[in-house]
Design a protein around this nucleic acid. Structure first.
Lengths: 167, 167
DNA sequence: ATGTATGCAAACCATTTGCAATGAC
DNA sequence: GTCATTGCAAATGGTTTGCATACAT
């Protein structure tokens, strides 16, 4: 895709996330392509987790066309730049999320919804925690259970017709 | 495979793990096949995590032949019986482990080795923890970092030739 | 005797790869 | 102009499925 010469240079946006990505690209001799920024912009607009498919649909829905390979490529770069994380929750396909403040993932094993909750106590605990013969870099805490919506539904309807998660 | 009539009935072994599986099978009208017990026995002999491939190789190496589908089938049953858990660590293929006491997983992002550590403080913290509009069933804590072996190696050899984990 | 479980091969599907055409520098 | 990046289509690899045969009940 060609860059519209009329818009200001979005690759040096004062958005810190965009700037961080640009710096990563520069530092590694990688090019600032329109596709990469389009993908990043869409990722920034997502609140929470998304799959590759959801991301691409969202971009397509916006009238911008990127190939699946480019989506994978950019997502990979964002992970190397430590801006994005990939999670595989039990029984589900891979999901991605921007790296922000540490948080716990609550995964409903009935509907598959994932919710993030901040937990300063836990974060403090982990910060202080040291391991034998192991230097920690980052961690993921996944809590599996049932969200209140599904709990209400299953009280009404014992045989989980709404179960989109387990087959 | 036929059952050797000379051996005592291993499906009612007094091993509590075997017994639990037998009860699960019975309760669900499933059959006590030799394959299922052979797979369970090998899983019990493994200390820590294993992949499907490793499990099957181990069984084959023991002179017992099971098909890949049967391995998947039995592993699935063991998960439904809440005796086995599947984990997908960052950038690695699925690994399984028996469900025992809760523990933290330390994953070395250089060599891919996974170590379990018990952490009673954390377990207590999680037991007490309640979430808004969410009922927890179980959790997984993954800590990514570098094991001391890889730390030593990378001090000697800056360009990680031993990196079997990241490509 | 009945119908579940196994083993095989084919199907599946998310992800990766090879390569010609495109476009950033 | 050069060479990284894109898009496409084909390949990959772990997992699942369909079906005939074997076997637990």
């Amino acid at each position: 895709m060609k860059i519209d010469p009329n818009i200001e240079d979005f690759t040096s946006s004062n958005n810190p996330v965009v700037r961080k990505f640009s710096e990563y690209l520069d530092a590694h001799g990688l090019r600032r392509t329109t596709e990469r920024y389009a993908i990043l912009n869409h990722i920034m607009s997502i609140n929470g987790h998304f799959t590759i498919e959801e991301l691409q649909k969202m971009i397509d829905g916006d009238g911008f066309r990127v190939s699946r390979s480019t989506v994978y490529n950019t997502v990979e770069l964002l992970m190397e730049a430590k801006m994005l994380r990939r999670h595989v929750f039990e029984g589900m396909q891979a999901q991605y999320e921007r790296i922000t403040l540490p948080h716990t993932h609550l995964i409903c094993t009935v509907c598959g919804k994932v919710k993030e909750v901040r937990d300063p106590n836990f974060a403090a605990f982990m910060n202080a925690r040291r391991f034998n013969a192991f230097t920690a870099d980052h961690y993921s805490l996944y809590v599996y259970g049932m969200c209140s919506t599904c709990a209400r539904k299953s009280k009404r309807n014992k045989d989980d017709k709404n179960n989109k998660y387990k087959k």
